[in-house]
Structures are given as structure tokens and as C-alpha cells.
Simulated assay, not measured.
Amino acid sequence: MSTFSQTELYLQDFHERVAGATSAAFAGFPAKTTSREYRSSYDVLASLALETPLAKTVLDVACGDGHLLRLLADSSRPLQLIGVDMSQGELDIAKATLPDHVLLLKERAQEMSIATGSVDVVLSHMALMLMDEIEQVLREIHRVLAPGGTLATIVGRTFLLGEANEVLLEIFRPIAKESLPPLAFGDHRTGTIEGWTELLQVDFDDLHFEDVDVPWNPTPQELWNSLVETYDVDRLPDDARHRLKDQLIPALSRLQDTDGTIRTGWGIRLVQARVR
């Protein structure tokens, strides 16, 4: 039986309380690279899977509420779909909204029960950079992929786009230093292209990295409402969270355009690799 780390226990608790938070943050906003636009960052991954000619089985690691699997299930392509997640709250939503043929497993990515070499494409949206033992996660992904199989993952690149990120960090850092309980999320190497190259080149070839922007024009209050459903703001004690809000909203207000919104969004990265 798995022993969960403190980080994993927190993530399980968060996704029980705020199930669907990731799809709420990303599914409704267009995403773009330098060469192409998509309906959302989930569609970036769905498109890659659907454009892989011989793919028959697709695995979504940390599938959450199943939004990416729904995109694939709704396509005209007959695919065997598998989702793995360690949050029962997220899996309950996925089970209620996905077709019965989609296999959902409550497992850690570090030890999946999926047969060796049985998957053609592994996808993951905004999750691998949070995981403990990333080398073991990648070994498991490599194990379940068939020869020549593909890994495609969306991970964090920068938090907010534009000046809003600088404003947020300037206010957040001193409050976090004083009040945020220490908790390690993932491996620092997943934050850079160099780090991903180091991690993947052991077992994968054809590494490809592409910046993806998810532009968003919220009001300061709308941005705050979204930030409340992020891990570090969620973990702040109530008094520290109130201080952050009281300082952040006026600071963000100085960035407003004439319509009251801010030009910002999420900065993420597409990482692709092929099994050697």
C-alpha cells in the first residue's frame, strides 16, 4: 500500500475540497504558441494525441476531473482511454461525466498497474511538475509506453503573464516568507528546459519544448478569485491571506485598462518526447 508524502496528502485534500480547480482555471481560455492557436491548453494535448496516426491507447496521468479525457472521448477517433489520479474527489467527477469505456484508476503515477508497453501516448496537464520522485514517475511512463510511444505534457513556465506576475511576487514573497508553512512541490528541474532535458534524455529521444500562453483579461477581483484556488494562496493562514488580498488588489488596480481589466494570463510549457 502506498505511503503518501505530506505534499501528496495536501494535494489530495485540496482536490477533495476544490475538485475541478485545474479545468476551471484552464479549460475556458484559448491557448497559443508561436505557430498555432487552440481552444484551450487541454486541446494542445488532445490535438497531439489525435494527430498521432497509429495511436490506439492514450493514458492521462493525473487526469483530474477528466476534462482532457472528455475531449478525446468526444472525438471521432476510436481510442482506448485510461486516466490515473490519486484524488478520489476528482475521479468521482470524471466517472460521472465520462463514457463507461474510459478506465479510471486511483493510483500514484510512481506505481501504476498498467501493463508494460501497452500505451501509445501518455498525456499530462499541469501535474508532472508537482510530483514527488519525478525520476520514478518518468520510469513508469517509459515502462507503460510502447516502443516509439509519445509523452506530451503541459507544465508550468511562469505563473502569471506580464507585469501582473511581478506585482504578485513582490507582494506575495514577504508574506509567504513570514506565514507560509514549508512544503515542497515537485522537483526544481521541471521548471526549466535544461532540467527537463536532464530528466528525459535518459530514456527518451526527440525532445521538444514549446512555450504556450493562455491570455486572460480579468478584473483585479476576478484574478484574486482565481488565485484563491492555487496551492500556495490556499495554504496561507487566514490572516495572511487577508493581508495578501488587501495589498494585491489595489496594486493590480494600477494595471487596469480603461475597461477595468488587466492584461495577463498563465505562462505554461509543452514538453514532448519519444520513447527510445
Rank of each mutant, 00 (worst) to 15 (best):
I175W: 06
F159A: 10
L145N: 01
G162S: 03
A146R: 13
L199M: 15
F185S: 04
E194R: 02
Q136M: 12
E140R: 07
P147K: 12
I134P: 10
T190P: 05
D206T: 00
D187T: 09
P181R: 11
M129A: 15
G149Q: 09
T158M: 04
L236S: 08
H242M: 03
P250D: 01
V137A: 15
P237L: 11
I141V: 12
V137D: 15
V155A: 09
A152C: 03
Q136S: 13
D239W: 04
N225H: 12
Q201W: 00
Q247L: 01
I141D: 10
T197Y: 04
A176Y: 08
V155L: 00
A164H: 11
M126Y: 10
E178H: 03
A127T: 15
R235M: 04
D187S: 14
L128K: 04
L183W: 14
I175A: 12
L199C: 13
E222W: 09
L180R: 11
E210V: 01
R143K: 01
I175Q: 13
F172H: 09
E140T: 11
R243G: 11
L169S: 12
D213H: 00
V137P: 13
K245H: 07
Q201S: 02
T190Y: 02
R235A: 02
E198D: 07
D211E: 14
V122F: 06
D132Q: 04
S124A: 00
A176I: 00
V121Q: 08
L255Y: 10
P174V: 07
S226V: 05
H188Q: 15
H125S: 15
G162M: 02
D203N: 03
I171H: 03
V214R: 12
T190N: 03
L183Y: 13
L138G: 00
L160R: 12
G195S: 15
D239G: 10
E198A: 07
N225K: 11
I193S: 08
T158A: 01
F185L: 06
R254W: 09
E222Q: 09
L248S: 01
G162Q: 01
L151F: 03
L255R: 08
L138Y: 03
D232Q: 10
L151I: 01
V233F: 04
D211Y: 10
L180H: 10
D206S: 08
A251T: 11
D211V: 03
F172A: 05
F204M: 00
I175N: 14
E166I: 06
R254N: 08
E166G: 10
I134W: 14
F204E: 01
P237S: 06
T153M: 09
T158Q: 06
V233N: 01
D238A: 15
I154H: 11
R254P: 11
T150A: 14
I134L: 14
I249S: 00
D232A: 08
R243D: 06
G186Q: 07
H125T: 13
S226T: 03
L183C: 15
G195K: 15
R139L: 05
K245I: 09
E210H: 02
R243A: 10
T190W: 05
L151M: 05
T197G: 07
L199F: 13
D132S: 06
L183F: 15
G156Q: 02
L183E: 15
V167Y: 08
L151P: 02
E178M: 02
M126V: 07
T197P: 13
L183R: 15
L200M: 04
